[in-house]
Design a protein around this nucleic acid. Structure first.
Lengths: 113, 113
DNA sequence: GTAAGTAGTTACCTGGAGGTAAGTACGCTC
DNA sequence: GAGCGTACTTACCTCCAGGTAACTACTTAC
């Protein structure tokens, strides 16, 4: 195996590991929603209109497990729960910005085809 | 709806459109493999060891449809086919670099837990 | 005429991501 | 004690992304 192949393999390994964390229909949207500040369960549901409570709950747990978000319980009345990005979650900001930038670029390319 | 909500909605819309193009287990890996130069069908298969010819063929077609890669047939013997990134595909480079950077960062964070 | 290398295609199947609908739990208010 | 607002959970189902295995088609080399 030559050097170029090694670089390729190492990149692909990292890609696979990364995708495992952010894959699925909902994780990136949830993280994007939280980049604009901490939010409650109901607020995220309002932002991401077609997510079911089941999926939201499930994906929030997965993101918490991966230390990308934190769950904070407030003993107000009624009880509220806030989700916010951890430093690790915040470190995704640049990546997400590039993703959004590319999305806008892609949209433009496809309009003027 | 206030201004912050508008920003959020617009970001989420872009996110969804973008994810539609790059989602799935194989598209990002294929694009990453091609960032290192044009490659033939068999070469991509060697890089991404556990992809089946069916999935590779299917995903290459999808990426071609979205103008992210091009398929070039060479009338050599035996016939060879080369896949390479279009300008649109190349424009994903920054995004992919950030993805890889974050992946490395994430790995480090998880090691020293 | 058969093996080997190119680049796929086709048919069939399965697991799990995700959807739907209803239920749970807790405290407050009226 | 019924209803509301919060934040989920549970049971069940469906569909398709992706896997597996075998086959196709063309040319060269032996």
């Amino acid at each position: 195996m030559n050097q170029k192949d090694n670089v390729c393999q190492s990149k692909l390994k990292t890609t696979r590991d990364t995708l495992e964390v952010i894959q699925g229909k909902w994780r990136i949207p949830i993280i994007v929603a939280l980049t604009l500040g901490a939010k409650r369960f109901g607020e995220i549901q309002k932002d991401i209109v077609d997510i079911s409570p089941k999926m939201l709950s499930q994906e929030l747990k997965a993101l918490e497990t991966n230390k990308i978000i934190t769950r904070t319980l407030y003993d107000s009345m009624p009880v509220t729960v806030e989700y916010s990005l951890t430093p690790l979650g915040l470190s995704m900001k640049k990546m997400l910005d590039e993703l959004l930038d590319w999305g806008i670029h892609f949209r433009k390319e496809n309009v003027r085809k």
